[in-house]
Design a binder for these strands. Structure first.
Lengths: 142, 142
DNA sequence: ATTACTGCAAATCTTTTGCAATAAG
DNA sequence: CTTATTGCAAAAGATTTGCAGTAAT
């Protein structure tokens, strides 16, 4: 239900960041705004090149990374062979089904943990981000 | 201070699992028992091939995966370009310093989280594992 | 004697890069 | 006009695999 990344938003933000609106970029933006989250470069490339056949994979790779730098996407390493990109910029976490690979977004109202200070080696480290990664069997694979 | 993987333990367990004790495997076992945790295949290969020069990288790749299958190691995907392997089989979590890349082990006494049920899409999924991944700046990089 | 294991080299797969041509602002 | 962007093809890096020979049990 989250209207997370419509085309206009992407176009507007990219313009702010000084990215030029090439046709290739427009196609990629549109694919991303329609696609489900957690896409790989190749998934985007497959769809995009159907609409814009002379598109090069390198262009998609470069665009995705530029979008990350510009804050339009998030890198999402879920452990597969390819990097994934998340169009959902809200703070959230993930559940991965070990059977079918499906990824579900998780939103936490609250999280609290108590570290075993004797055995943990944090010293005076400063924690900047917390990522919860749940694995298991999804509702359809149970 | 955790005497986590001495050579005898590895040899014993591998014998149980029916792995043959080749010289190559022995060298790899010894490296792993001396090494710090979170090693890459290449790190093991570099050290091992110093002692056993005709060792092939493919052998190390295969051995590490066999050890995972046999439950002697754990795959540890920390997002770098290479897979890491964890010799620490206890349940624990990780903190990664975004400055220097150092990995610290974290042991939790307790963790509790409250999911936003409306926005999270878990259905009747069954959760099998929980992985906490903290990032930040370690004590030395602060 | 069986069967697992090894080294090698080639293959695969993902991602990056150099470069000259092109197009957006 | 200036600078970012593109396509291509090559390169890079990690990992896997086929195969024939070798060694552990």
């Amino acid at each position: 239900m989250t209207e997370n990344n419509n085309l206009e938003k992407l176009v507007g933000l990219s313009k702010e960041k000084g990215l030029k609106l090439t046709p290739q970029r427009m196609v990629i933006f549109r694919i991303l705004s329609e696609c489900n989250q957690h896409v790989t470069v190749d998934q985007v490339y497959q769809k995009a090149s159907a609409e814009y056949p002379m598109l090069s994979p390198a262009t998609v790779y470069r665009n995705m990374e530029q979008m990350v730098d510009a804050g339009l996407l998030t890198r999402l390493d879920l452990g597969g062979s390819s990097m994934r990109y998340d169009t959902n910029l809200e703070e959230h976490h993930h559940f991965v089904c070990t059977e079918c690979g499906k990824v579900s977004d998780l939103y936490l109202e609250d999280i609290q943990y108590k570290m075993d200070a004797n055995r943990s080696q944090l010293g005076k480290a400063k924690i900047n981000s917390l990522d919860l990664h749940l694995q298991g069997t999804c509702g359809e694979c149970v």
